[in-house]
């Protein structure tokens, strides 16, 4: 088993993935590092990748007019980052800034989409995992927006 396969097998995000599907993933993946302060992507850029953070952390920033960047979420060890590569218009809606030096696996979105189209079972397995993550993120964001620590009205 090569290094990348071993790494992916150990990530909770891919738990239960069949070996042949892991092999498809590995074909689209590479290891990368990024230093604190750098950006993985910027709002409006083409979304061609997704990331699995193995170490370090990355923040997602939005820009509200007249305000500085607002951090809405951080992604850290063992968590996936980015699903805009899955849906048209394939553009990022956030800036992703590395907060702590990061090691990650980077997946080529176009390569993955092509494999999903060819092998719908593989595609379904991947979409199931992203749907779960999206639901969790939307739920967490809703609680953040509720401002539960504000004064009771």
């Amino acid at each position: 088993m090569d290094d990348l396969t071993r790494i992916l097998k150990g990530l909770p995000f891919f738990e239960g993935f069949a070996d042949e599907h892991l092999a498809l993933l590995v074909g689209c993946a590479r290891n990368e590092r990024a230093t604190a302060g750098s950006f993985l992507f910027r709002e409006g850029q083409d979304a061609t990748t997704f990331y699995l953070i193995r170490e370090g952390s990355v923040s997602l920033n939005i820009h509200a007019p007249g305000q500085g960047p607002l951090i809405v979420q951080t992604v850290s060890e063992n968590e996936p980052l980015g699903w805009s590569w899955l849906f048209p218009p394939y553009t990022w809606h956030f800036d992703a800034r590395v907060e702590q030096d990061a090691r990650m696996v980077v997946f080529d979105g176009l390569c993955l989409r092509t494999k999903c189209d060819k092998d719908p079972v593989f595609g379904y397995e991947l979409i199931k995992r992203f749907s779960r993550i999206m639901t969790q993120r939307i739920e967490a964001l809703s609680f953040q927006l509720m401002d539960v620590y504000g004064e009771r009205s």
Binding site: A36, S59, L60, G68, P69, L70, I71, T74, F143, Y149
Partner: peptide, 13 residues
């Protein structure tokens, strides 16, 4: 729940 510039810790519920 809301991070801002200069905050390098966790943001999220």
């Amino acid at each position: 729940d809301r991070g801002m510039e200069g905050w390098h810790g966790n943001v999220g519920f």
